[in-house]
């Protein structure tokens, strides 16, 4: 098996498949990370992804325009983020339950709207792979990273963007301040509410992109429960990445490459019970997290609603 794996071809295929699989996690986990950095835990990722997957698919199906599909998918995610922000920031509700409520709402609405509008599985011409000139001809790296569709590139580009915004801009400083010590940030004139709304809505939009990618970038169709629990894994990957874009990237890639590897192991007919193959990414993610050295703590104000002390 090892010999087979070391053949360049096999490895490239596995890595390329891992990159495709990592994309939805990357979008959703980066978005969730931004929200959590501002102090809001949003467990509604999975439901948001489903609803956006549907709206993006439907608009693409009806209009034939992929761009419009993406736009509507992102807006749907933003709207779900807005609901979460109203409930958890303005109403200061318990964030864990709010997120589960949002998830149920998204799960239900996606099924209902699908039933009302299409009612049967249909397909669209989704995003086609777009080779990046020059880069796609690079050995190994070209095939692994540069022969995907535009949404995949976008997901990976968003990693450094998130890093720059969070750690190199005044806005990022404010976000982190609100997540660590909202009282202090408030005293310094930062609008805790405003920042949290912004971050939760952006987080929702990113979940929306994740769902959009599933329906018009990867599967090119919409089916009920299209995420099959991906949103929950994306939340887990934020903890894996310890609230850092590069960590989230590492987690998403690790999880997805191992997943691609287990698929390949099965396809090659290597005799282990398939359940153990399917478990591989779950087990390895736990193991990798346990032995990661960094000891970053979660944002101090995470999941704590902020209430300005009445003077």
């Amino acid at each position: 098996m090892i010999n087979e794996l070391l053949k360049e071809g096999a490895l490239i295929l596995i890595l390329a498949s891992g990159v495709r699989l990592a994309t939805p996690y990357l979008f959703a986990a980066l978005g969730e990370m931004i929200g959590q950095r501002s102090g809001v835990l949003n467990l509604g990722v999975d439901g948001t992804m489903m609803l956006s997957a549907f709206t993006a698919f439907y608009v693409t199906f009806a209009s034939g325009s992929l761009a419009l599909g993406v736009l509507v998918g992102v807006l749907t995610g933003g709207l779900m983020g807005l609901i979460m922000a109203v409930v958890s920031v303005t109403m200061r509700a318990e964030q864990g339950i709010s997120g589960i409520g949002l998830h149920l709402f998204g799960l239900g609405m996606s099924n209902l709207l699908f039933r009302l509008s299409l009612g049967a599985i249909s397909t669209v011409e989704g995003f086609r792979p777009l080779s990046v000139p020059i880069l796609s001809d690079l050995p190994v790296i070209g095939a692994v990273f540069f022969r995907h569709n535009v949404l995949v590139y976008l997901a990976f580009v968003l990693v450094p963007v998130a890093w720059v915004v969070l750690f190199r801009t005044p806005l990022g400083l404010k976000i982190r301040a609100v997540g660590e010590n909202p009282q202090a940030a408030d005293t310094l004139g930062v609008s805790v509410t405003g920042i949290r709304y912004l971050c939760v809505i952006i987080g929702g939009m990113m979940s929306g992109l994740a769902g959009t990618y599933l329906s018009i970038g990867l599967n090119n169709m919409y089916v009920d429960n299209i995420t099959n629990g991906m949103g929950w894994i994306a939340v887990a990957l934020v903890y894996f990445g310890r609230w850092h874009p590069w960590g989230v990237l590492a987690g998403s890639l690790l999880f997805s490459v191992v997943n691609a590897l287990q698929i390949w192991v099965q396809v090659r007919g290597i005799a282990i019970p398939y359940e153990f193959a399917v478990m591989m990414p779950y087990v390895l993610t736990i193991v990798a997290l346990a032995f990661a050295v960094r000891r970053a703590q979660q944002p101090a104000a995470l999941s704590k609603p902020y209430e300005r002390a009445e003077a």
Binding site: L13, S17, R20, L21, P24, L214, L218, N219, M221, V223, D224, N225, I226, N228, M230, N259, A260, I263, W264, Q266, V267, R268, G269, Y274, E275, V278
Partner: peptide, 22 residues
């Protein structure tokens, strides 16, 4: 050669797609 593989779930559409590609 028939390679029999399983996604481990009845609803894993994306996984089934990736498995087919592999």
């Amino acid at each position: 050669e028939v390679s029999v593989t399983y996604t481990g779930s009845f609803g894993d559409t994306a996984g089934a797609g990736e498995m087919a590609k592999t």
